[in-house]
């Protein structure tokens, strides 16, 4: 287990009698866009929740840069360079787009409270820089006009893009995207595809859960296919799309 940035080994998570993830293993390499696909209920979002620490696995291992992270609380995992978005958007609705991204910078920002209490200029300077970084990230996702808008007033597609900006704000080594283009129009999907490529070209890894097959084929270097919590195929987009097990899982077995 050397090449992987993220190494998932025999991962297992049960909910009562349901085995949502059932012994899945895969690895995400540095700088790779890794697709995680499968029919509804295959366990994709559960895997994201396990890697980000919102759920604890009932078995198996999750190793990030050689160190096990399974069972750690989410804030520790975030501190090790994992950021995520949510399938059911979870922005902070009453905060502005900019302030959402500022929250995303939490781990990167220097503490400024003592300096603020003493009314020092260094605190204001740090806040100005953080604000500028937030604005720059929102510009990067094409929302420079919406910086001061409350998250709840943004359109669906805009909210998804703020979530991506918020996740990027922590400068993660591994970005977990859970259906980032759901509900987006084709133009917005293209913009997200470009953004994902840009993130990966900067040396970061992306684990992408997505139903838009064209996007997955387009941006992923490698793909893991899940069905009933098990890995049924893995490989390049071309290999996976030819795999009979994958075709059977999506379309049913030919008689």
């Amino acid at each position: 287990m050397s090449a992987g940035l993220l190494q998932v080994e025999q991962l297992e998570r049960t909910f009562g009698g349901l085995r949502a993830v059932d012994g899945a293993s895969f690895a995400v390499r540095p700088g790779e866009v890794h697709g995680l696909i499968g029919p509804n209920g295959a366990g994709k979002t559960t895997v994201i929740n396990l890697v980000s620490g919102l759920l604890a696995p009932t078995g198996g291992e999750i190793v990030l840069e050689g160190r096990p992270i399974h069972g750690l609380p989410p804030h520790d995992i975030a501190g090790r360079g994992v950021a995520r978005t949510f399938q059911n958007i979870r922005l902070f609705p009453e905060l502005t787009a900019r302030d959402n991204v500022l929250v995303g910078q939490h781990r990167r920002r220097r503490p400024s409270l003592a300096a603020r209490m003493l009314l020092l200029r260094s605190a204001r300077e740090e806040e100005r820089q953080a604000g500028e970084r937030a604005a720059a990230l929102l510009t990067q996702v094409g929302l420079s006009e919406r910086v001061a808008e409350r998250a709840r007033n943004l359109s669906y597609g805009e909210q998804r893009r703020v979530e991506i900006a918020r996740a990027l704000a922590s400068e993660p080594r591994l970005l977990l995207l859970d259906e980032p283009t759901a509900g987006m129009n084709p133009v917005e999907v293209q913009a997200v595809a470009a953004l994902i490529r840009q993130v990966a070209s900067g040396g970061r890894s992306v684990l992408l859960v997505e139903h838009n097959v064209r996007l997955v084929m387009d941006v992923c270097h490698r793909i893991t296919v899940l069905n009933f919590g098990r890995v049924i195929a893995e490989g390049t987009p071309a290999e996976v799309s030819r795999d009979p097990a994958v075709i059977a899982a999506y379309l049913g077995n030919p008689k």
Partner: peptide, 15 residues
């Protein structure tokens, strides 16, 4: 504010 709005999401921000 993040904790008030959505505590689990705040935790994934490293808070």
């Amino acid at each position: 504010e993040a904790i008030r709005e959505d505590e689990p999401a705040a935790r994934t921000m490293g808070i």
